[in-house]
Simulated assay, not measured.
Amino acid sequence: MKINHLTSAEENLMKLFWKMESFYLKDVMEKHPDPKPHQNTVSTYLKILVEKGYLSTEKEGRIFKYNVLVPFEEYRKFLLKEFSLNFFNNSGKEILKFLINENLISQEDLTDFNIEISTTNTKEPQFEFANEILNPKKDKKKNKDKKKKKKKD
């Protein structure tokens, strides 16, 4: 199943739809928290979500019944994979490291899953490339000295 991205407005409506699973337009209007959007606005979003494959419709007389096609867990998995790919080089290890460094997950949380981490200090990264840019004269001098030695030999 191909899952498409949702806008924040679509996502907010889907949160309500995932709770209801199957519903009519009038159900959405009743259960939507205040301030309630206009019925035409909700109807437009329902049409968009059907086109994106998140909802299906069943015609019952003159009205439509909507059913959720993409479960919340599938959407959450899709978002996490996209997030991992775009921001953490598709590495769960990088995500976990970030969560720990930002104190969003604790050692206690990890022990609940039988995961232990050592709190050793990590080395500062070497910036060789930056040094080449910041100190180009040193490298040029070395190269010139090497070329002179080769010419003398």
Score class of each variant (00 low, 15 high):
L6R: 00
I63W: 12
D34I: 14
L99V: 04
I117S: 05
K142L: 15
D145A: 11
T122K: 15
V70Q: 04
K141Y: 13
L96N: 04
D112K: 13
Q107K: 15
D109F: 03
N114Y: 10
N121R: 15
F23G: 00
L85G: 10
D34E: 15
F78G: 02
Y75V: 05
K138G: 13
K138N: 10
Q39W: 06
E30S: 12
T111K: 08
K77Y: 11
E132S: 14
D27W: 07
K65P: 06
D112A: 10
L110A: 04
H5K: 13
K36E: 07
K2M: 03
W18H: 07
N103D: 13
D112Y: 14
T119N: 13
E116C: 08
F64L: 11
V42H: 03
F98Q: 06
E116I: 15
Y24A: 08
K152Q: 07
L6A: 02
K97R: 09
I3M: 00
H32W: 15
P125S: 14
K93G: 05
L25K: 10
K97M: 11
I63H: 12
D109S: 05
G53Y: 00
K59W: 06
A9M: 02
K150A: 13
L6I: 00
L96G: 04
V70Y: 01
K52C: 01
K123N: 13
K15D: 10
T41A: 14
A9C: 01
K47T: 15
L79M: 13
L55I: 00
A9F: 02
Q107F: 07
L79R: 11
D27E: 05
K137Q: 12
F72E: 13
E74G: 01
P136M: 09
V50K: 01
I115H: 02
F72L: 12
T120G: 02
K31D: 09
F113T: 06
N4E: 12
S43M: 05
I117V: 11
P35C: 08
S84Q: 08
K47C: 09
L16W: 06
K52F: 01
F113M: 14
